[in-house]
């Protein structure tokens, strides 16, 4: 049986690396006595595959992993057993069974939404958004492995939403992940700085979710799991 799981990583765990996060999940699987399947070979490991890497420094509302089980169990049973042993800083919110041939998360997730919470007392955020969306190019120096190369973010920025709360504004930027351009959250920070949004106004950054974008639609990886569609 193969399942796909959606979980939330609380802001207290924002400094964990991807490897740390995998350890947290694998150890919870053992503590919860989940009938996980093991790989063959000298060094059997749990057949777990994580979704796209949550950057160090960010927390995430909708993160994903796929897991292979060696025997059937109910989805509710899985979630409640896991939540009982997970630290209070991580929670499984949804899960579903997926077909054996469903492509891996890493292959299908192609869009991400980052949320920048800003202290917006005296900034006109919507004017900032309009001028960003009206530009033809949004050039930054790339971060990560291929550092320092000129990179145009424009074609990878799908939409920018604004939500005004009492004191703060959430800027939600929907971006491409992988193809056509892989956009990192720190590149977005650079872009914001360059386009006149002072980074000192940002009080929190998190990842709202990972999505499968088909046409103009963004699907949850839990919704787009059929092999033949």
């Amino acid at each position: 049986m193969r399942i796909r799981v959606e979980y939330e990583v609380n802001s207290e765990l924002r400094f964990l690396s991807n490897l740390d996060m995998m350890n947290v999940i694998q150890r919870a699987l053992r503590r919860a006595d989940i009938p996980y399947a093991l790989s063959e070979g000298f060094n059997p490991h749990i057949r777990l595959s994580m979704g796209t890497v949550l950057p160090v420094g960010l927390w995430g509302q909708r993160e994903y992993f796929d897991l292979e089980l060696s025997e059937r169990m109910s989805i509710e049973g899985f979630s409640s057993k896991m939540n009982a042993v997970l630290p209070p800083t991580i929670e499984i919110n949804h899960a579903c069974e997926i077909e054996q041939l469903t492509p891996a998360l890493m292959k299908v997730i192609n869009a991400t939404a980052y949320v920048f919470v800003i202290n917006a007392d005296d900034v006109d955020v919507s004017a900032w958004r309009d001028q960003v969306l009206n530009r033809d190019i949004l050039m930054v120096k790339s971060r990560g492995k291929k550092k320092g190369i000129d990179k145009d973010l424009k074609k990878g920025i799908y939409k920018i939403e604004l939500i005004n709360n009492e004191m703060v504004t959430n800027i939600i930027i929907w971006v491409s992940s992988g193809e056509p351009v892989n956009i990192r959250y720190d590149e977005l920070l650079d872009m914001m700085q360059q386009t006149g949004l002072d980074s000192r106004l940002i009080i929190d950054v998190y990842r709202q979710g990972n999505y499968i974008k088909v046409g103009e639609q963004f699907y949850s990886p839990l919704k787009k799991v059929k092999v033949f569609e």
Binding site: S11, E12, D20, G57, P87, I203
Partner: peptide
């Protein structure tokens, strides 16, 4: 710590505590 200090250091998880 979370907002100003830890984002500036290497291996911040050394300083956060609250482990299982």
């Amino acid at each position: 710590l979370y907002r100003d200090i830890l984002p500036r250091v290497s291996k911040p998880a050394r300083y956060t505590g609250n482990e299982l």
